[in-house]
């Protein structure tokens, strides 16, 4: 919205367009936003002592039984755990499905590639190329969101909700806000796509508008790479 504001004068001190500069600084602010959410997750990560766990964890069976008896966990959670070879120790499966999330991560990465091609099309006055790759970026973004909805549902069924534990709360709030950012990105790309079908297209500077939207899209993608690495790939 702000990025679409027209300036009083097009000449700027630095030569950088003010709208692009605004987007860069805004993304700096967003870094702190996601940084705080990730920090919260990391603070609580070490304190998870009952299933569901993010990754495979060994727990004393007696401790699990006790938690089950006191109602801290339910049978649903307990199903994730089974006796191991070692006496008195249970192994609890991690709730993260890394192969599945790798797929969705790949989809989001590909969307960034599509975004690059859309920007190229816009900057080189090839409207069809721009439109089709914008559409592709949107679709890939939507597929990523589909994966996320599926993941949230599965976790819910396996007993991980907002109130289950600090792991649940910080996971859902972090990834939920990331998903919201992707959704907003899809909306921005959708409006650009719609606007490009007008008679005057994206106006006099289509490359610029698509590029600024692309900055946002790549940022959201990079944030996901960080989330995927920190949450999914680095073991507890």
């Amino acid at each position: 919205m702000a990025a679409a504001e027209h300036q009083v004068e097009h000449h700027t001190t630095t030569g950088i367009d003010s709208r692009k500069l605004l987007m860069w600084i805004f993304l700096g602010s967003e870094c702190l936003f996601f940084g705080s959410l990730i920090a919260t997750y990391l603070i609580f990560k070490g304190e998870i002592d009952l299933p569901p766990f993010p990754s495979e964890t060994h727990v004393e069976t007696a401790y699990l039984e006790e938690a089950l008896a006191s109602g801290e966990i339910t049978e649903v959670h307990k199903h994730l755990c089974h006796e191991s070879d070692e006496a008195g120790i249970s192994v609890c499966e991690g709730i993260f499905d890394i192969p599945l999330t790798s797929q969705s991560t790949f989809v989001l990465l590909m969307s960034s590639v599509a975004m690059v091609l859309a920007v190229y099309g816009a900057q080189h006055n090839r409207p069809m190329m721009m439109k089709s790759w914008l559409l592709a970026t949107m679709l890939l973004g939507l597929i990523f969101l589909g994966y996320q909805v599926y993941e949230f549902r599965t976790f819910g069924q396996e007993g991980l909700t907002l109130e289950t534990s600090q792991f649940g709360a910080s996971f859902f709030v972090l990834t939920g806000f990331h998903g919201t950012h992707v959704a907003v990105g899809v909306l921005i790309l959708g409006s650009l796509l719609l606007a490009s079908f007008r008679r005057r297209g994206l106006g006099s500077e289509p490359g610029f508008q698509v590029e600024t939207a692309g900055l946002y899209w790549h940022f959201v993608d990079i944030v996901w790479i960080v989330i995927f690495t920190v949450l999914y790939l680095i073991p507890a």
């Binding site: 600084i25 805004f26 967003e30 702190l32 936003f33 705080s36 919260t40 907002l162 600090q166 709360a169």
Partner: peptide, 25 residues
């Protein structure tokens, strides 16, 4: 402001979830 406000926003979001939903941040 640009760098401090998002931190407050995150804290407020978590507080909102604690108050309105069922989390315990």
């Amino acid at each position: 402001l640009i760098l401090a406000l998002p931190v407050l926003t995150v804290a407020l979001i978590q507080m909102l979830f604690d108050r309105q939903f069922t989390t315990s941040f």
